[in-house]
Design a protein around this nucleic acid. Structure first.
Length: 277
DNA sequence: ATAGATGTTGAGCC
DNA sequence: AGGCTCAACATCTA
């Protein structure tokens, strides 16, 4: 589930706990998501601390607590963050095909003194929860490149990345977090489809004008996703590829031709062979 | 019932 | 070194 905008949305949920003290910490007994620091250590470190900030960068989430304690969460393939009050009410994902999170996959629950519970749920457990102590944010967080919507992601920068990897498929390149933080499989498909670039295209086959279009499209898809999904998880417009790519038999919303589904660079690409060249 | 799923990492190979 | 493919992780769903 979580790419750039989904992670932003989930972090926003946990902001309900900012300013409140962690009263009690629950951890799932058989969760493998507590990797370098164990569940017990994390629980002990967080108990009694004030949550002071909640930030997202790319697909990473970072929560700052008082007394130089930080909690990093990567949501993997199926991770979600939500607040307890939403479980009974109008959860935005209740209308999604995946349905509501199952309580048996709640791996970490922070019960806050202000009455909210911050829940990390992850059925497949490909996610990771990491504890960090220190005055500064952890190294892995500081190394995340600036947002693709920020000024520092320039057209020239994109040209440089493509030039450095001439033989690599643009689709594969877009998935690399060290260059394009937050871009995941659906976003690559959306970007290539809007930019009319085939997923079979290699970096060296991109002309200067095509790179300019690609650059604008990357930024536009990031902005659109953050606005529609990241803010409130509104329904995604049917004019996007998004709603049509999830199961086989989808139709291109631009020209109505059947979408193709191919494994490209190890991931399923959904694309329109009419629109994308 | 079998395959595939919004992610990442590491191994093996060319 | 760079880049490709595959497997692994664990669970749910079409």
């Amino acid at each position: 589930m979580p790419e750039l905008a989904e992670v932003a949305y989930f972090v926003r949920q946990w902001r309900a706990g900012v300013g409140a003290v962690v009263e009690r910490v629950e951890t799932h007994p058989r969760a493998r998501v507590f990797r370098e620091s164990g569940a017990k250590e994390i629980a002990a470190a967080l108990r009694g601390k004030v949550l002071t900030a909640a930030e997202a960068a790319g697909k990473q989430a970072l929560f700052r607590f008082a007394e130089e304690i930080w909690l990093g969460i990567h949501l993997g393939m199926s991770g979600r963050l939500f607040v307890a009050a939403e479980r009974a009410g109008m959860a935005p994902w209740a209308e999604s095909p995946a349905g509501q999170p199952q309580p048996q996959h709640d791996h970490l629950v922070l019960h806050m003194v202000n009455g909210v519970a911050l829940i990390y749920n992850d059925p497949r457990m490909f996610g990771a929860v990491r504890l960090h102590r220190g005055q500064d944010a952890p190294e892995w967080w500081r190394k995340i490149p600036g947002a693709l919507t920020a000024k520092e992601f320039s057209e020239e920068k994109l040209r440089g990345i493509l030039a450095r990897h001439p033989r690599v498929l643009v689709k594969s390149l877009l998935l690399r977090q060290e260059y394009f933080p937050g871009i995941g499989n659906w976003m690559t498909d959306e970007i290539l489809w809007r930019a009319r670039v085939s997923p079979h295209r290699r970096a060296e086959e991109m002309g200067v004008e095509e790179i300019a279009v690609l650059w604008r499209t990357i930024r536009q898809v990031c902005r659109d996703a953050l606005r529609v999904i990241g803010e409130r998880w509104y329904p995604v417009p049917d004019a996007w590829l998004f709603n049509h790519r999830w199961q086989r038999g989808g139709i291109c919303p631009k020209d109505g031709s059947p979408l193709r589904y191919e494994t490209i660079g190890g991931r399923t690409a959904a694309w329109c062979s009419q629109c994308q060249r």
